[in-house]
Simulated scan of single mutants.
Amino acid sequence: MEVKVWSYLKEYETNKEEIIKAITDVLESGVLILGEKGRELERQYSKYIGTKYAVGCDNGTNAIVLALRALGVGEGDEVITVSNTAIPTVSAIVTTGAIPVFVDINPRTYLMDVTKLEAAITPKTKCIVPVHIFGQCVDMDPLFEVAKKHNLFVLEDVAQAQGAEYKGKKAGSMGNISTTSFYPTKILGTYGDGGMVNMNSKELHDKMKRLRFYGAETTYYAQEQGYNSRLDEIHASILLTKLPHIEEYINRRREIAAIYDRELADTSLILPFVEDYGKHAYYLYVIRHQKRDEIITKLKENNIFANISYPWPIHTMTGYQYLGYKEGDFPETEAAAKEILSLPMYPTLSNEEVMYVCEVIHKILNE
């Protein structure tokens, strides 16, 4: 048996006719960019997470760039986030001309440690970017207290937490603005790149629409400096076929997580810690062990493919050395990066495959 860390092939095979029809409908419509499919996805995704507005983008990275631009973040501003995140979170901040400022993580959840926010704030701080990583939300109430006290914007990065909840509110519905990615591996993913920005402010909505379209509201006339960052109709149409099933996807992920929880409870692994304030969507099922690399190697020998998210904290990367951080600055982030791994997690995994993963892990740990 082979168990991949992620695969879309079973899902595609099951929904092939619907996906092909969605693509064909677009191709036969005569409209490929900024059409009704994109507008309908914006309406439906906003309704799903509980915001008034949404603007589709070409990918999740540019969604963050444009969201920051819409908030007025630019050259010399500081944006607080975490080093335990995907490169795009930080790359997007840098693209605006702003300076990423990191805080350490909570060692139980791997999410931003909001108790460290205040110490990171300077007169240049303009925005906080909480990353709802692995499928669970950052503790937002104390974060908002800090943001309000210092008059800071909050941009939620929801790329890994579509459908997750914080005290009954969907991830992406709480900040001044939020972004998500529709990269294929995401809980709601297309078969290529895509992104979305959500907000409740009409002013931010209108600015975002201009920013993704060269700064223009009508063709050939720019009201401000903008970009080319449009979600095309084919990907919007594919996403419209999948969005009605997102809760099914999440429920299945939670079922798989429950099997892992049960079957691996008596091992030396550190299993995911779930905060009681929210609903975990299990984009990833992240475990921890001091012999992480050995476990991954032996899993691979048994045709089970795990992943590390993320093996190198951003502040330790050569590309971000200019920020002035050094190893040891964020001990919890650095310790986690040496020990965490992600087990296979996607809705089309069978119980048999999940049990096989658990059996092999038991065998590895008992050798």
Rank of each mutant, 00 (worst) to 15 (best):
Leu188Cys: 09
Asp232Trp: 03
Ile121Phe: 08
Tyr221Asp: 11
Thr316Ile: 05
Ala222His: 12
Val114Cys: 03
Gly135Cys: 08
Gly60Cys: 07
Gly319Met: 09
Ala306Tyr: 04
Asp293Lys: 12
Glu40Arg: 14
Pro311Leu: 03
Met345Ala: 09
Lys242Ala: 07
Met208Cys: 14
Thr14Phe: 09
Thr109His: 03
Asn59Ala: 14
Met140His: 10
Val146Asp: 07
Pro142His: 14
Phe102Asn: 06
Glu352Ala: 08
Glu275Ser: 03
Ile99Lys: 13
Glu339Lys: 11
Glu332Trp: 07
Ser350Phe: 02
Lys148Asp: 11
Asn198Glu: 11
Gly319Asp: 15
Thr267Asn: 06
Asn106Phe: 08
Lys167Leu: 14
Gly56Phe: 12
Ile361Trp: 06
Ala86Lys: 11
Pro331Trp: 13
Arg288Glu: 15
Leu188Arg: 06
Gly278His: 00
Leu239Trp: 01
Lys116Tyr: 03
Met208Tyr: 01
Ile314Met: 11
Ile238Phe: 05
Asp157Phe: 01
His132Trp: 11
Ile361His: 12
Met174Phe: 07
Cys127Ser: 02
Lys207Asp: 00
Gln162Ala: 13
Leu264Ser: 10
Ala147Ser: 05
Gln290Ala: 06
Glu203Asn: 10
Gln223Met: 15
Glu118Asn: 00
Ile87Val: 15
Gly215Gln: 06
Asn151His: 11
Leu204Tyr: 14
Asp77Met: 09
Tyr227Val: 14
Ala257Trp: 05
Thr96Phe: 04
Glu294Cys: 07
Ile64Asp: 05
Asn302Glu: 08
Gly278Lys: 02
Lys169Met: 15
Lys116Asp: 07
Glu263Met: 04
Asn176Arg: 13
Lys116Gln: 12
Val354Ser: 00
Tyr110Lys: 03
His362Trp: 10
Lys170His: 13
Asn198Val: 12
Ile19Met: 00
Ser181Ala: 10
Tyr12Lys: 05
Glu17Ser: 06
Glu28Gly: 10
